[in-house]
Design a protein around this nucleic acid. Sequence first.
DNA 1: GGACCTGCTGTCAGATTCTGGCAGTAGCGA
DNA 2: TCGCTACTGCCAGAATCTGACAGCAGGTCC
Lengths: 236, 236
Amino acid sequence: MSRSARLLDLVQILHRHRRPVSGRTLAGEMGVSIRTLYRDIATLQGQGAPIEGEAGLGYVLKPGFMLPPLMFTDEEIEAIVLGSRWVAKQPDKRLAAAAADALAKIAAVLPDDLRDDLDATTLLVGPRSENAEAIDLGIVRQAIRDERKLGFLYRDAGGAASKRLVWPFALAFFDKVRVMVAWCETRQDFRHFRADRMSGLTATGIRYPRRRQAMLKEWRAGLDAPGRNGAKDASG
Amino acid sequence: MSRSARLLDLVQILHRHRRPVSGRTLAGEMGVSIRTLYRDIATLQGQGAPIEGEAGLGYVLKPGFMLPPLMFTDEEIEAIVLGSRWVAKQPDKRLAAAAADALAKIAAVLPDDLRDDLDATTLLVGPRSENAEAIDLGIVRQAIRDERKLGFLYRDAGGAASKRLVWPFALAFFDKVRVMVAWCETRQDFRHFRADRMSGLTATGIRYPRRRQAMLKEWRAGLDAPGRNGAKDASG
DNA sequence: GGACCTGCTGTCAGATTCTGGCAGTAGCGA
DNA sequence: TCGCTACTGCCAGAATCTGACAGCAGGTCC
C-alpha cells in the first residue's frame, strides 16, 4: 500500500473511532510501527487535517472529511462554485460561513491563474428576498446530525401557537422558505415546520430513539405513496 | 520536492499549455528525466486525470482542475452538497449534470459509511417553479468561457423584438430567472438579458476583443457607483 | 518508402525516501 | 510515585523512485 493511500486510511480509521484512540492502537490497525504512525500523523497535520493528540489520552479527529486528489472538469467546478455561492447567500449564517470557508479552501490550493478564474467566475447568484427567520438554523442542523430532540414554539397558518417536541431529520430549502421535517412526539406523526414560524428553539440534548436515515426513508416512502401526502404542515 | 507535489505541478503545467506538449518539454520544465515523466503521467491517469497522449503530437489535458487532498468540516461538506443539489435542480441541463457528476465523484472516494451519510444528507432542495427557457444556457456558458460573441433574438418587456450581437461575460441566477450580462455591440453599452426572453441563440465563434474579467470588473464598478445602475434591462 | 518525431514499455543499478527499533523528554491522570 | 500517553532524534535496513539505455508502435513530412 502506498503511503498516500495509507494516510487516507488513517483519517478514515480516526473518523470511525469517535473517542480518543492511542497511537499504538492506530498503528496496530494499519499494520505499521508506532514510529511511522507518528510520522504519518505529523504529515496529515501538515496538510491541514484537524487531528489533535493529547498525552495520556490519544488522538481525536475533529468531525470532517478528507478528500483524496480529485479531478474536476470546468463545468463541475463551475457547478460547485455556483452552488456554494448560493449557499453562502442563505440566511442560515453558519451554513453560509461554511460555504464561504469551503470555497476559500478550494481557492487556496489552486494556482494563481485558476484562482483568478474562480474569483471572477462569471456565474453569479442574485440577492435573496430576505425572509428573516427568528431562529438559528445551525441548531436545527446540529440536532439532525446528532439525532437529538428539539423543543420550540410553533405558530401555524391560522396563527394558533403550540409547544412542540420533535425528532428532526431533514431540512428542505425552497425558493422562499426553509422547512424542517420531523417526527412530532405530540401528534405521533411526521410533520413539517416552516422555519419562519418557529420560535424559542431549544436543543434538549436528549437523543431520540430512531436513526435519522430510517425516518427519512420512511417519510419519503410516504411521499411517493399515492393518495397520501407524507407529512402535513404542522397545523394539527 | 516530493513526488505528489510534482504530480500536481505537472497538471498545472499541462493546464497552462493549451496546445499539445511533448513529454521532453514537460520533463525539461519539471527538471526530471523523460522516463520519470512517463511514469508520472501514468500515475495521474491512474488517478483519473483526463490526460491524453498521442504519438507524434504530445500530451493534452482536458480542461479541468486537479485538487490536492483536502480536509473539509462536516458543515463545509454539507454546504457543498446542498449547493450542488441546488445546481442539479436548475433548468440548465448541462450545468445540472455537471453538478451531479461532481457529487458522484466526491461520493465515489468516500468510505461507505460517509457515503451513506451523504446520500441521506438531510439537507434537501425543494423543486423549482419551472420557468422554461427556450435556449440552451450551456451555449452561453461556453461562449463566456471562450470569450466569443453571441447572436440572438431578444423580446423586451414591452414585447418588441430585436436582433442582438453581444459580448457575454456573466450569468446570474436569481430565484426565478436567469440573466445574462453582456456588452451589447448595437447599443455600445452594458445590458442584461433575461434568458426566458431570448431565442434563436447562435454561437458565432468570433472572439470578442476584451477580457471577460475586465468587463466584469468594469460592470461591477458601475453597479457600485452612486446614481447609476450599471446595466439596464435590454429594452433600448 | 524513408527520415523523424512522438508515445510507451522493460530492465537494472544507483539515488532517494521510507520504515522500524531504540533511547530519551515531557504532559496528564490516578 | 507509577503508568500511560504524545513526541523527537538517530541510524541501519527495506522499499521505492529515478535516470539511462534499448526497443516497439503510431503518426507526419519529404
